[in-house]
Design a protein around this nucleic acid. Structure first.
Length: 673
DNA sequence: GAATCACGCATTTTT
DNA sequence: TGCGTGATTC
């Protein structure tokens, strides 16, 4: 593809941004304004001008964004990978590009592994057992607080945030947590960023190395950066400040995770002489939808002035619908979907989305859609904690890669059963503690441990030796998948699963998921230039590896506003626009209302052709029905862009008949498939 | 360990 | 209302 002609096709603002190279640039890219396109073009332009691709770094938040950008740059260069810049998520950059090579400076070993949130949680639970306190604090709350401390959102001993009691527990826990993590030679997600920052701060020579390596830096979704990420970016950009930050302050909706909107608002102050370019031409939505979005977001005080516009024409007005209650609201949405399909046979269910503030609102919609035989997919929820089989296998791989990872070892020491029960494990752990050695070493020296019978000693030593053998194999042999396959069969893991899950269907599913896991490893090996166990574990820690997810999403999409960011749908139902839901009751402290308004804004701007905003007069909450007030945000909508529908009005018979027809047509279509 | 029950809690969640 | 957690029990 010819880069020059591609760049010339950009609109003037986009073009300006793509052609900019030296010095700080803030690209304020509104929703649907071709942000990724501009960013990729800018990268391509740099390469085109002769900058070595290795010197260009683009950082994103999600794997999805990174992949998308990678693909688009690649297609610009006709698949020539040598011309692709370094594109990475924050976490992956810190892990793979920096820490894997430099972490020794901070007293860790290079073969460190990453704890996911589940492992983090079990460590915290373990540690909490040691802390004497009559009140048991919830592990997840403590974990959240540890994370907040690390991200600069919370200080230890902050009496304003916690009761004194929590502070005390937190203090002692926080220290213990870190000591354990370090002796295990493991880090958590937050550490990836934090340790990199510490490294850069404490070792100027290391920092310089990376500053010299990355001459041009781009950061996507800059409004979502937290203080650690901000510092990281600032340090990396160094004196040169060839830094291009892209984002939209109006779409900053992750404050609760530590994102600091001031990072983007203060960009010009932080980087004097910064060029600021605004992308305001929207290629996604019809005019009325944009008018609605603009009219809402205008009410926010802390923001950069801008307004989306389109040359597409105004399209349909945005409909505001009042329903009787939540069930009625959901029923109406389902009906409306059938109606639209009835009038427009080409419309696919995949073109519709129901978007809500909180996940628990999805229920009535699931029921209504099911009732009307409309296919749907619910996006989100939390589901990475389960899948025992994957975590077991991962624990094996982790202890093989990192012999100090006591926790992973503990997890699988007796899985499958090998005669190492809790009593034995307790004795071994004691021994390890007394001698200040890793648990695995204690297994090797089982003979020295008092009270262990000969059988147990043999089991322990055999086990430790097996781990050692596999470490050697993973180090010296190629073909990760084959080695893992050997491991799984030699420990009899599948038989163990079949025993563990007595019902055959479940067992088959679990065994199947082990197989799909090994499959995903061959995928990793195929993609990677130099596959390795530690590389595999890194990828594993930082990606879902679920194989499929979202990819073949099917039917109508049910999704939270947060997860919908970055997506677009021809027809959007933005539901539950009620006081205490949006804006949410729990987020009204401080300038929380502005973030809630941004959420509304994000929801609105997902719609391309048609937008329906709904609310109910009463709603079932925690089992009891209570009246609901319309959201104050509804009053902020541009009157010219909206029309009001009232569900309560008597339906005219003609409409009713059409609805019935639509309903049956829909069923017919289902049957014909 | 696994099955059961009472209790408390219920926003959003990129890695 | 309904789910996940922690204690209790066999």
């Amino acid at each position: 593809m010819d880069i020059k002609t591609e760049i010339s096709k950009l609109n003037p603002r986009q073009h300006e941004a793509a052609m900019h190279t030296e010095g700080p640039l803030l690209l304020l890219a509104g929703a649907g304004t071709g942000k990724t396109k501009t960013l990729t073009m800018r990268a391509a332009n740099l390469v085109y001008k002769g900058v070595p691709p290795k010197q260009i770094l683009a950082v994103t938040f999600t794997n999805k964004a990174a992949n998308e950008m990678r693909e688009r740059v690649l297609s610009l260069f006709d698949g020539d990978k040598k011309k692709s810049p370094v594109i990475s998520t924050f976490h992956s950059f810190c892990l793979n590009t920096v820490l894997r090579h430099e972490i020794m400076h901070l007293g860790y070993q290079r073969n460190f592994t990453v704890f996911d949130s589940g492992e983090q949680m079990s460590l915290i639970r373990n540690l909490m057992g040691d802390i004497e306190s009559e009140k048991s604090f919830k592990a997840d709350l403590l974990m959240e607080n540890i994370s907040k401390v690390k991200n600069g959102m919370l200080r230890l001993n902050d009496p304003k945030r916690d009761g004194k009691e929590l502070s005390e527990v937190m203090n002692s826990l926080y220290d213990k947590y870190h000591v354990s993590m370090k002796t295990f030679n493991v880090v958590d997600f937050d550490d990836l960023l934090l340790l990199t920052l510490r490294l850069f701060r404490e070792h100027p020579d290391v920092l310089r190395k990376y500053q010299d390596r990355f001459i041009y830096i781009m950061v996507d979704e800059y409004q979502d950066t937290n203080s650690v990420q901000y510092e990281l970016v600032r340090l990396l950009a160094g004196e040169r400040k060839n830094l291009c930050c892209v984002g939209d302050d109006d779409q900053s909706i992750y404050t609760f995770r530590g994102a600091d909107i001031r990072n983007i608002l203060d960009f010009e102050k932080d980087f004097p002489g910064a060029r600021v370019i605004k992308l305001e031409q929207n290629y996604r939505s019809h005019g009325h939808i944009l008018a609605a979005a603009n009219s809402v977001i205008r009410n926010n005080k802390s923001r950069k002035e801008k307004a989306l516009w389109t040359d597409k024409g105004s399209g349909d007005q945005v409909s505001i619908m009042k329903a009787r209650d939540d069930e009625d609201e959901a029923g109406w949405v389902a009906e409306k979907i059938s109606m639209i399909k009835y009038y427009d046979k080409d419309k696919a269910f995949e073109e519709f989305a129901v978007i809500y503030r909180s996940n628990n609102l999805s229920r009535p919609f699931e029921e209504a859609l099911r009732k009307d035989r409309i296919p749907y997919t619910v996006v989100g929820g939390t589901s990475y904690f389960d899948r025992k089989e994957i975590r077991d296998i991962a624990a094996y791989l982790k202890i093989i890669a990192n012999p100090k990872d006591d926790l992973s070892l503990l997890r699988i020491a007796n899985i499958p059963k090998r005669g190492l029960g809790t009593t034995t494990l307790g004795r071994v752990a004691n021994f390890a503690k007394e001698h200040s050695i890793p648990l695995l070493d204690a297994f090797k020296r089982a003979e020295e441990i008092p009270d262990l019978g000969p059988h147990v000693v043999k089991a322990a030593v055999d086990f430790a030796e097996m781990i050692g053998r596999y470490r050697e194999r993973f180090d010296s042999e190629k073909g990760l998948k084959d080695i893992l396959h050997d491991l799984i069969s030699s420990i009899g893991y599948k038989d163990y699963l079949r025993e563990f899950y007595k019902t055959p269907e479940v067992a088959i599913k679990r065994v199947g998921s082990v197989d799909s896991f090994t499959d995903s490893i061959s995928r990793y090996e195929a993609e990677e230039e130099t596959p390795s166990l530690s590389g595999l574990l890194s990828t594993l820690a930082l990606t879902d590896m679920d194989g499929k997810k979202g990819k073949d999403s099917f039917g109508v999409t049910l999704i939270s506003i947060h997860s919908s960011k970055g997506l677009e749908f021809p027809v959007v139902f933005l539901v539950g626009l009620e006081t205490d839901i949006l804006p949410h009751r729990k987020s009204m402290a401080g300038d929380g209302i502005e973030e809630e308004r941004r959420l509304f804004y994000v929801g609105i701007t997902r719609a391309m052709e048609q937008l329906f905003i709904t609310y109910a007069g009463s709603r079932v909450r925690y089992g009891t029905e209570s009246p609901s007030e319309p959201s104050i945000f509804l009053g902020e909508l541009d009157k010219g862009a909206i029309e009001h529908l009232d569900r309560m009005k008597q339906e005219d018979p003609d409409e009713r008949e059409k609805k019935a027809k639509a309903f049956f047509a829909n069923i017919q279509a289902m049957l014909n498939q």
